[in-house]
Design a protein around this nucleic acid. Structure first.
Lengths: 134, 134
DNA sequence: ACATACACTTGCAAAATGCAAGTATCGTGC
DNA sequence: GCACGATACTTGCATTTTGCAAGTGTATGT
């Protein structure tokens, strides 16, 4: 059987690109990681206006890649709750370094001064603190 | 005049995605940062087989974003030499965290054991060492 | 002057995306 | 047990982006 996700190479940068190298996937991961979102409707409501078919496609893909899991949290609730797996949570350092870079170069960044300060001054503690909340 | 690069939001993750959130851009940055490549032909020769029109487009875009500069290094040489600006070099921590993540989850990763070890054990020194070479 | 190398451009087919509308399933109120 | 709203998708089609092959322009080397 041929692989569903053909790979161009096993370069680590390329592996990451083939996992989440598009304009939408990291936004879903951001919402799961930092914004307490977990449902399809939550993701749809994000500021960047992802369209429904793309969202469904990306969620499916993230599940197949083992970055996200889908589960009905409370048993008698119909609402689907997505959450990050360990593989997904391990994206935290990448997300934080991206935030740092954008915080430095986007004059109008939404990232708060205080968060960027913490990131700059004690990245490792910040990571530990976030992980402690998981 | 309307902006050439419309932005969906100033979320730091989104800012990064709009800068390099596609399947090819980071590969060019990788080649500039780690593989001593600097010419159009060098990038074309990379393992992932980027096509010529996409390469030209991305190089132009990276220049416009101030991540890469284009200059004929030696004066009487026709070969164009691209290089990273400070903004581009500041992507190093992101690139390294990506490498770490892929190194952990891609069983067939090209990243060397020893490099991943160094990254795991003393990330900050590794960054400093690479920066010292610039 | 001619060939070659390099850095792109162009044209067209194929794939991915954006948008609007429709469907499926569940839980709740009656 | 049945209508209803809420949630989570799916579908169809127009637009945009990508991939591929071929062509063009400009140096430099001989």
């Amino acid at each position: 059987m041929t692989n569903k996700f053909p790979q161009r190479s096993h370069c680590p940068i390329n592996y990451a690109l083939e996992s989440f190298g598009d304009k939408w996937t990291l936004l879903i991961i951001r919402d799961l990681m930092f914004n307490d979102k977990q449902s399809y409707g939550d993701f749809l409501a994000s500021g960047e206006k992802i369209s429904t078919n793309i969202l469904a496609d990306r969620l499916k893909r993230l599940e197949e890649l083992g970055i996200v899991t889908k589960g009905a949290q409370a048993p008698n609730r119909s609402k689907v709750a997505y959450s990050l797996t360990q593989k997904g949570r391990d994206l935290l350092p990448i997300m934080l370094e991206i935030t740092r870079w954008s915080g430095k170069y986007d004059a109008d960044t939404y990232a708060s001064r205080s968060f960027l300060m913490r990131l700059e001054q004690d990245r490792d503690k910040l990571i530990a603190a976030i992980r402690a909340g998981w």
